[in-house]
Amino acid sequence: MSRTRTPVVAHWFAGEGDAFRLLGTRCTACGAVFFPREDVLCRNPGCQGTDLDEVPLSPRGRVWSYTDGRYRPPAPYVSDPELPWRPYTLIAVELAAERMVVLGQGAPGVTVADLEVGMEVAAVPGVLSEDAGTTWTTWHWRPVGVTA
């Protein structure tokens, strides 16, 4: 059975393979960058901007911190209660150009034992969950040089 690949949130990321990017927006008036994207109003308190352009975020950053989820999170996180819970890793990544920290799940197979604060990671396409007709896609952070 073929499933439709659908982003878990529309317009937050795009592209495949090395061209994968998180998508934010940039205020055309003051240059402030936003992720998750702001499309209507700039949140810089000193700016009245209402014109924001879509902008890809830096594909790589450095680990600001990391953790994992040893217990099944509640809905709306989707997991199969019939299957044993498999912890996932959460990585907060500092993007140098944007001067911001973006949270994401680690790529499958990446555990806290593989991570250190300051380590370089890349945003890669990932799968959050699958149901009957849909593969819900997301972004993952993966240590650079690791292909697991």
Partner: peptide, 11 residues
């Protein structure tokens, strides 16, 4: 409950 901090690039 934020997924990211603000960007400090402009301010």
């Amino acid at each position: 409950p934020d997924i990211a901090t603000d960007s400090a690039a402009a301010v």
